[in-house]
């Protein structure tokens, strides 16, 4: 589908395989993390995703861009099956991770979410202390047993999230007492504390001020050394700044998946070009 769209709109057709970016950045490693094939999704009668094919690579940042309602958040939520929480959702197609289809009946969505973390649009720390916010999930998952391990894990996660210096003296204050940007970094610390493979970020900076946004963008850049990051963003400059690969969605279709530099300098499809140059969206 993707390639057909491309074929219609661009000539000459390069030999693009389904799911692969049109152009690859050869400097980053290319181990596959998540493979998506012919993914369709319906909300009741409305089809929200049409035959999406995409390969997400390990330890890269992949940005999903597109106008509102184009299905980018919906797609993101397919990767950790958060769409299960919505009624009347039907999914069809393959989302493969670690050799397993995440939608197969035998797959435990809790186990999946354990390996695919998520950060939300609005910071949503639990109404507990900062320490508990981070330590709570690892304790559930038996990642830490001893008290000392737990302290160490909390410190490491908060350091990785760039929050440690700001909160180390008030670990037992409620998480909600922090500022918006700090709350969001607390949520990131919480997500990385369970050591997932993939972190999904659903417009993580849209509720934040520019300075907090810049901090989180820097953080994403650092975190990709350990984790695979898939982020949805409204902000094209953000995608251009942080992402290795960018996927452009429009009306539930993946129009173009490309190396970020190429996408923003020389997009392959007309639609992506129009969107990036600000002609709609």
């Amino acid at each position: 589908m993707n390639s057909q769209v491309a074929e219609r709109e661009m000539t000459p057709m390069t030999s693009q395989r389904a799911g692969q970016p049109v152009t690859r950045n050869e400097q980053v490693n290319h181990d596959l993390s998540v493979r998506v094939r012919d993914l369709n999704l319906w909300y009741g009668e409305n089809q929200a995703l049409h035959d999406v094919n995409i390969d997400v690579f390990q330890k890269t940042v992949t940005a999903l861009i597109g106008p509102s309602g184009c299905g980018k958040s919906t797609f993101l939520r397919c990767l950790n099956r958060m769409n299960d929480l919505i009624r009347d959702v039907r999914i069809d197609g393959l989302v493969e991770m670690d050799g397993r289809d995440v939608n197969e009946p035998k797959m435990d969505e809790v186990a999946l979410r354990r390996r695919v973390g998520m950060v939300f649009q609005k910071p949503n720390p639990f109404p507990k202390s900062i320490f508990e916010n981070v330590a709570y999930a690892p304790r559930m998952h038996d990642l830490v047993s001893r008290r000392a391990d737990q302290d160490e894990l909390v410190e490491r996660s908060l350091r990785d999230a760039g929050l440690w210096e700001e909160v180390k003296d008030k670990l037992h204050q409620p998480g909600t007492s922090l500022s918006g940007g700090q709350q969001q970094r607390l949520c990131i610390a919480r997500a990385i504390a369970v050591q997932p493979d993939v972190i999904l970020m659903d417009e993580p900076t849209s509720a934040l001020d520019p300075i907090s946004t810049a901090t989180i963008e820097d953080l994403m850049d650092k975190l990709k050394q350990q984790f695979t990051i898939v982020t949805v963003t409204h902000n094209m400059q953000q995608a251009a700044r942080v992402a290795d690969y960018t996927a452009f969605f429009h009306l539930g279709e993946l129009i173009e998946y490309n190396d970020t530099k190429t996408m923003f300098s020389n997009p392959y499809t007309k639609k992506a070009e129009d969107y990036i140059t600000g002609r709609y969206g």
């Binding site: 958060m82 929480l85 809790v110 186990a111 998520m118 609005k122 949503n124 109404p127 999930a137 559930m140």
Partner: peptide, 26 residues
């Protein structure tokens, strides 16, 4: 807020754990 539940579920908690440790205390 539903975001509490989603936050907990996205960390790989079961429904029961989400209710017991996040929803009910809140």
């Amino acid at each position: 807020p539903d975001s509490m539940r989603q936050g907990a579920l996205a960390l790989g908690m079961t429904n029961g754990e989400t209710i017991k440790y996040v929803v009910l205390p809140a």
